[in-house]
């Protein structure tokens, strides 16, 4: 890298330009990320609603994590504790369901599209179409599927099924806990499988084709080539995809929050992010919201550290390949 440059790079006189060039980034990052982060930490130790300036210590955290032991079933602490853990559970369920569909599809397609023996016609077209959902705005996607899976008999699916005599009464997609969750999983997978497929595909194309030739000459079958060659080499990219998707999934907000008509979000789709959003945006409960944010942040950092570890593993063979 730059370290291999000539000595004149190290002349002190140029260092100030380095600081000058990176200064805007760090000023803006400090103003819009670091200070808001510190502010969030401060808010998490303060009260809620009108008591936003009162210092409450770890109360928000202890209520979120352990509930309010003194107050019985309807105590504020208990309500928030339940909502928070419920949100966490829902987030993980929604993420896992979507990810299973997504990863199976995108792995399969990536392997197919990179297969040199069995060519598929129109690969370029398929890639373009499969990535298409990813560029549509979440608000429109949610609105689209709300119209398609509407509870009323005028929704696209219900009207199709009723007109063909498959069912008599409209299916209440949106008010059934599991149906609405499965729909959200489907939407998330629909949005992201093209993107994941292209990421995996670029990983597969990075594999030296001569390895495959050698395997074919040695009589390796399609499945053993996949499990013994493609997967081990793809492992770093694969893990990267899993963990970045999980981190992204933990912040899942748009689709679960927007999947509703009327003014109130669907209760079966409360995620951690919608909990945070609702409490600082609608109910003015900055304390709970901030404490939940910090807890989410801690989980994200732990996962991020795993990514960093795999990331350094992943770059080592990559650099060799370039030479």
């Amino acid at each position: 890298m730059a370290g291999g440059g000539t000595k004149s790079h190290k002349l002190v006189s140029y260092a100030k330009y380095g600081y000058m060039f990176i200064l805007p980034f760090f000023l803006v990052y400090g103003f819009f990320m670091i200070w808001p982060f510190i502010n969030t930490v401060l808010l998490s130790f303060k009260g809620n609603g009108s008591k936003v300036n009162e210092w409450v210590g770890f109360q928000n955290y202890s209520w979120l994590l352990f509930g309010d032991k003194s107050g019985g079933r309807f105590a504020t602490g208990k309500v928030h504790h339940d909502a928070f853990f419920d949100g966490f559970g829902t987030t993980v369920i929604l993420w896992a369901g979507n990810f299973i569909i997504q990863i199976v599809l995108s792995l399969l397609l990536a392997v197919w599209f990179s297969d040199v023996r069995i060519k598929i016609k129109g690969t370029g077209f398929f890639k373009v179409v499969m990535y298409l959902p990813n560029i549509i705005m979440a608000a429109s996607v949610a609105a689209m599927f709300l119209m398609i899976f509407s509870n009323t008999k005028y929704g696209v699916i219900n009207s199709l099924a009723i007109n063909n005599g498959w069912i008599k009464d409209p299916i209440p997609f949106m008010s059934n806990k599991w149906m609405v969750r499965v729909i959200v999983m489907f939407i998330q997978a629909w949005l992201w499988f093209g993107n994941t497929m292209l990421l995996l595909l670029s990983g597969i194309f990075g594999i030296d084709p001569s390895i495959y030739e050698a395997a074919a000459i040695d009589g390796s079958s399609g499945s053993s080539t996949f499990f013994r060659i493609t997967m081990p080499i793809l492992k770093p990219i694969f893990l990267y995809v899993v963990v970045t998707s999980l981190i992204g999934g933990l912040q899942m907000f748009d689709i679960p929050y927007l999947m509703h008509t009327g003014n109130d979000p669907n209760d079966y789709l409360n995620t951690v992010a919608t909990y945070i959003y609702k409490h600082f945006h609608k109910f003015n409960n900055f304390g709970f919201s901030a404490a939940a944010s910090i807890l989410l942040f801690i989980v994200t950092v732990l996962l991020g550290m795993i990514v960093m570890r795999f990331n350094t593993d992943a770059t080592a063979p990559k650099k060799q390949r370039k030479k």
Binding site: M33, P36, I276, S293, L296
Partner: peptide, 8 residues
């Protein structure tokens, strides 16, 4: 998302 409470 994790800084948005403090941000707002």
């Amino acid at each position: 998302q994790v800084v948005s409470a403090g941000f707002l």
